[in-house]
């Protein structure tokens, strides 16, 4: 019974969002429901935070492997949450210079801004930067020019990489840029042609496919065929 009600709630919410696009008086309903969604999603973050606390506290209390790291995570989480919620060090806004809570929590000069600028951003930036090494090493091991499709992939990657660097421009700089029928052979122009023709076509077809997939999933949720979000025993992904 409770699952049926949950499916009904999801279906009605989805239909209201779709109908509000087509029925003018319902436009305000879309805004209201979107605000409810944002608020509920914000409380979902509280759920995530509570889950993080619970998991790390369990690891620390059980002295499980890596409990020191769990303690570091916990301290970092609580400290960031504390300075963010209490707007520690946030300079007052120009509009309300006498109000301590006038500025935004991540305003420049505040503690949350400091944490983002000097802790979060450098670590995440370096983690993504490090992927350059792993992507290159994985590509070196995995890419083999075994058939036409693989050759297309390799050559395109090579041309796009070279065409966006000074080295690539230099390599084909001997090809005249002002002769219409051959200038596209310069690596920087060839790279541009690949992006504007072949990649556009491939990406466009994939976007169309993804949009059809999203629309189909939406319809399945609206009519209650897809209940996978309710968890196991709810009728499975395909109803």
């Amino acid at each position: 019974m409770s699952r049926s009600i949950a499916v009904l709630v999801a279906g009605v919410a989805a239909v209201v969002m779709v109908l509000s696009k087509f029925i003018v008086p319902m436009e305000s309903a879309e805004t209201t429901v979107a605000e409810w969604f944002n608020a509920a999603a914000a409380i979902a973050f509280v759920l995530g935070g509570a889950s993080l606390l619970k998991m790390n506290l369990l690891t620390i209390s059980a002295r499980g492997p890596g409990w020191g790291y769990a303690a570091v995570t916990l301290v970092a989480f609580l400290a960031t949450l504390g300075v963010g919620l209490f707007k520690v060090g946030v300079p007052p806004s120009a509009a309300f210079p006498d109000h301590r809570m006038g500025g935004t929590p991540d305003a420049e000069g505040g503690a949350l801004w400091w944490i983002y600028e000097y802790l979060m951003s450098p670590i995440t930036g370096t983690l993504f930067a490090m992927l350059a090494f792993y992507v290159a090493s994985a590509a070196f091991r995995a890419f083999r020019a075994k058939n036409a499709a693989a050759i297309f992939l390799l050559v395109t990657a090579f041309v796009v990489l070279l065409g966006r660097t000074y080295a690539g421009v230099f390599v084909t700089s001997w090809i005249p840029d002002d002769v219409p029928w051959v200038s596209w052979l310069r690596l920087e122009n060839l790279s541009a042609v690949i992006m504007s023709v072949f990649t556009t076509a491939g990406t466009r077809a994939m976007i169309i496919g993804i949009a059809i997939g999203v629309a189909a999933t939406g319809i399945k949720i609206m009519i209650g065929l897809d209940r996978s979000y309710l968890g196991a025993g709810a009728g499975g992904g395909n109803g």
Binding site: G49, T73, F77, I115, L119
Partner: peptide
């Protein structure tokens, strides 16, 4: 970064 990101 895990703790800081969640708190932020």
């Amino acid at each position: 970064v895990v703790g800081v990101s969640a708190g932020y």
